[in-house]
Design a protein around this nucleic acid. Structure first.
Lengths: 206, 206
DNA sequence: TTTTAATGATACGAACTAGTATCATTATAA
DNA sequence: TTATAATGATACTAGTTCGTATCATTAAAA
């Protein structure tokens, strides 16, 4: 069921330098990510991983020991991916919009689905996603909530706001019922959530 | 070395009546549920299912054709499980508490985790969970929101309320980071969510 | 130059698994 | 009573997959 040789750019053979080793390492991990995202851990075969990275299984086992080794190594590279980079200047609305756009993207939905599915087998993966994802987002939201709404807005506002930024649409996307969010949808969604938390009643009125 | 059999209640052999057939059918499906919840679809073997149901593979294939047949048949029995039965008289607070207690239980978290993991392979399962779960909960919440808060509270209030009833704790449970909710935690959680939506700011103050 | 570590290509073994087949058995249906 | 459908118990087939092994090859290291 796998496509056979489609003009592979044959790799050189001999002994690699140290730089080439680290480069190949990242190359394998980057190739593994979309495979795991699509097939999950159990239904991804080592042959798939090797083929995607244009590497033989021999090399793959040489670098990572086994399949779980590739998986757990990959997750360490995801910290920056799940948290995203924070612009210096940000308003609550722009931050909320960026969070929605990010968490409702196809890549992040796929990643979350994978991590949830494998959370019992790979607890570190779940912990990593939560600490570097949710917690950082909530922390940044809390800073801006205090800055824009004053100190009487307790820290639980940020957590509630984050839950609304996910909302039903996020659940629908996790379940594969709808596609990723557009920029416009994300902005509208963020604004609605802000209004709901800021004024109550959640009817989006002003 | 007599028998490895640990006192299995050996089943009778001959031809079963129609009643016995339906009974055995449900018996197999009920036994399959916890297995699928624990191991997922891919890592559950047919031998496991047969052993759990105290039935031979022969019988299992006779009833359900194949492994996916057991899985998809099982999901039809989950409609009532995911929606729950609705008491005639309910206040918004009691309904919210019951929803939290239900959705944050170990069984429901396991089910959701499974459905999310297999949502791409079994889209019907995801659709079933969402329609019979989320949508019904939101609908019931919307009725009571209108009844207790008046008609000016739009229907989006119910969806936002539902998102808060899930909240960060639900995410933590999906990721296996914390255990199921106690009755007290559920009641407190529900009250906080109601206050957040009802008054805004989400600080739980009155 | 010589040695050696790493690789490509490929084959292989061990284990597991879905699904089928065989045969005796037994209770239901005719 | 007799024929038959369904089962238990178990073995089996065919396919898949993880991980290892073999051998030639090549470039870095000594």
């Amino acid at each position: 069921m796998e496509s056979l040789n489609t003009a592979q750019p044959v790799r050189k053979r001999g002994r690699p330098t140290e730089d080439e080793r680290v480069e190949r390492r990242t190359q394998i991990l980057e190739a593994a990510l979309p495979i795991f995202l699509e097939y999950g851990f159990g239904d991804t075969t080592v042959d798939q991983l090797a083929a995607a990275a244009r590497v033989t299984k021999r090399t793959l086992y040489n670098y990572f020991g086994n399949k779980a080794g590739v998986f757990t190594e990959m997750q360490r590279r995801l910290a920056s991916m799940v948290s995203g980079d924070a612009p210096a200047h940000d308003t609550l609305e722009s931050l909320a919009t960026r969070i929605v756009l990010r968490l409702h993207s196809a890549e992040m939905i796929g990643l979350h689905r994978l991590v949830i599915a494998e959370s019992l087998r790979f607890p570190e993966l779940a912990r990593n996603l939560y600490d570097n994802g949710d917690l950082r987002h909530i922390s940044r939201l809390a800073d801006l909530v205090r800055a824009e709404w004053g100190l009487n807005a307790s820290s639980s506002s940020a957590a509630a706001l984050f839950s609304l930024l996910l909302g039903e649409d996020y659940r629908r996307r996790l379940l594969g019922l709808i596609g990723p969010a557009t920029t416009e949808e994300a902005a509208r969604h963020a604004l609605t959530a802000l209004t709901t938390i800021g004024t109550g009643r959640g009817d989006g009125s002003h």
